[in-house]
Design a protein around this nucleic acid. Structure first.
Lengths: 220, 220
DNA sequence: GCCGCATTTCAACAAGCGTTGAAAAATAAA
DNA sequence: TTTATTTTTCAACGCTTGTTGAAATGCGGC
């Protein structure tokens, strides 16, 4: 077998690129910074990935499939364990958010940088339209469909605006700016994803019900 | 009195810088791009503002005072017209958001770029800690105090997490990525700030009440 | 007219950028 | 071992970057 021995330097380049791109954005990072922090030569990034933009895309593709299937699995699991009416709004939001705690689950701290990078492109008027659809349109459609079923009679327009609010709250959480740490005087911690989701899930579920009509009543 | 003749080229540089920084971020824009789009020489930006970072800061300072006083005025107005119990959560959120529709009010389209730029730094792990506190800490503290009064018995931790969710939803709205336009198939429009706030205000208010307790204290 | 000052352009600098072809080193196959 | 292939480094390229000093332009006061 002459196949991929999976040299560790290639992965180190991806790890460092992930971290630096998440912190400073695509244009705020140079290939030399990435190479230096990874302890390799500049040309090695080009050898493995091609152009700088190709490296950027490679960072996204490395974890995309794993992330999407984890969240889709969570949705299907909560649908399977629900009655004929389908899962509640809380259960759907929970399935949407909880799989994102995979930094703790997998023990790989790179996930945190990856999610911060997702936040960066989702909030960017330049990168958003270029990358978000390709990465997440399928996933979002599945969750929107589940929410539509859990909120009978709701107008599509209202559901999308509510999803937009959810997406924004999530994005700022993933960005890990540490702003809430300072504002709250240390009472809240950006790095505490569990606390963030514990608060976000009931917050968002109540918002959906308020805007999309109370017909979708709260259930245990 | 040879006072400021306020050459229009200086303002044009700020306008273009505002627009391009909002779209591509600080590192994604060159001084030459700004100068070209403004129809001036590269060196003119340095003459008026100094270093590139000084120009970046000048863009923020141009509208900061106006924006903050508009929002603080709205808060004070809703407090003045309330009874002894103070304004409701909805009224406070409304005062927090509605003044941001000043692109329509003032007729200055630059406001939209400015707010997108605010969204950019608020979501950035690099720029956020550097700039958000200086610009908005006073304003946020005033609104937090009003919310604390409107939610008697709520734990500070819960209030800050709810504010974080509000800030995230607002940030993604200001970023103007157009993602909701595509997702909703045109039913929702990123540029329609009024529709965004019409949905965000009840959404967020319901979330605050759910998480921070409906009237008295929250469960253990 | 000329003068003084603010504004704007011109021209160029050193430094850093992404990228590439060829050499060197490491690894696998024989 | 020798050979073939992959991985990594070296060295350099053409180009762009932010910045600056000096020259040119505009303009009100004399």
């Amino acid at each position: 077998m002459t196949k991929t021995r999976q040299a560790p330097k290639r992965e180190r380049i991806l790890d460092v690129a992930e971290e630096l791109f998440a912190l400073r954005g695509y244009d705020g990072v140079t290939l030399r910074q990435i190479a230096n922090n990874a302890g390799v030569d500049v040309a090695l990034a080009s050898y493995h990935f091609g152009k700088k933009l190709d490296l950027f895309n490679a960072v996204f593709e490395r974890r995309a499939a794993h992330l999407n299937s984890a969240r889709l699995d969570a949705l299907e699991a909560c649908q399977a364990s629900a009655d004929a009416a389908g899962p509640s709004v809380e259960q759907i939001i929970e399935a949407f958010l909880r799989p994102l705690e995979l930094a703790q689950e997998t023990g790989d701290p790179g996930w945190q940088n990856y999610l911060a990078l997702i936040a960066y492109i989702n909030n960017s008027p330049y990168w958003g339209p270029r990358m978000m659809s390709k990465l997440f349109d399928g996933l979002v459609s599945a969750f929107i469909a589940a929410l539509r079923k859990a909120l009978p009679g709701a107008r599509d327009e209202d559901i999308y605006w509510c999803y937009h609010n959810l997406s924004g709250a999530l994005t700022l959480t993933l960005a890990q700016t540490g702003r809430i740490d300072k504002l709250s005087g240390g009472k809240c911690l950006s790095a505490d994803f569990e606390a963030a989701y514990d608060h976000m899930i009931p917050f968002v579920a109540a918002g959906f019900r308020e805007v999309c009509g109370r017909s979708g009543k709260k259930r245990a």
